Structure formats: C-alpha cells, structure tokens
Simulated assay, not measured.
Amino acid sequence: MKLTALLLTSMLASGSAFAACERADLSPRPEIPSGESASFEEMQQARDEVVAYIKDREAFLECATPSSTVNDRMVGNLERVAGVFNRELGSFLKQQVAVASS
C-alpha cells in the first residue's frame, strides 16, 4: 500500500514525463503456479506472463523516469517476481526429473 502511494505521488510529481508514458498498457502482476503441481503449459504461460510483466515495467521506468526511491522499489519488485518464477521453475524441473526417473 505504501509503495502504491509512493508510486502515485512520484508519478503525479513528474507530470509531463508521466503523461507521455502509456501506463494503461502495463500487464498485471502474473500469478505463478506451484512448480510441484503445475503442468508444462501452466509453466510456459507463467514464463510468458513474467517476461511481459518485466518488459512492460522496464519500458515504463525508461519513459517515466521516477525518483530513485520509486525506481529502486519497482526494480526490487521485478527481481522478486523473477525470483519466485525461477524458484517455482526449479521445483517444476525437479518434479519432471523425478517423474521421468520413476
């Protein structure tokens, strides 16, 4: 909640820089399935959504030029999303190896 308020305040303060950005095209934060129970298709879809999410936010950060605090928080959030996906992908791959070995 604090991040949302901080982002909004920063974006409003940046005025014209923010107005030039196409914020409406930002993809929603992806839902990442559990790697232990997800199908190949679910993991593939999650990967595509994570990639789109990160690309959208990177483009927004280049366009909007938010304050360094907001930028750092947004980048940290992107790293967390990528980290969660990578962790679940690791679980998925272990599960696939276990199934193939049995």
Rank of each mutant, 00 (worst) to 15 (best):
N71G: 14
A100N: 09
L89E: 12
L61V: 00
L3S: 12
A64T: 09
G76H: 09
A64E: 04
R29H: 10
A98E: 04
S67F: 02
Y53S: 01
E42K: 02
T69I: 08
V84P: 00
E22R: 15
T4V: 12
T9C: 03
A46P: 01
E36D: 11
S68D: 14
T69P: 09
E58C: 05
M1Y: 05
N77C: 14
P28K: 12
V84A: 10
A24T: 15
R87I: 13
E88P: 14
V97T: 12
E42M: 04
E42V: 08
S101E: 07
L26I: 11
A13R: 09
L8G: 05
P66I: 00
A64Q: 06
A38H: 02
V99H: 01
C21A: 13
G15V: 07
K2P: 06
L89A: 01
V84M: 13
M11E: 00
S16F: 02
S27F: 09
A17V: 14
G15D: 07
E42S: 13
G83E: 03
P28S: 14
E88R: 09
Q96I: 06
S34D: 13
S68Y: 00
G35S: 07
Q44G: 02
M74N: 08
I54T: 03
P28R: 12
F40R: 01
F85L: 07
D56T: 10
G76Y: 05
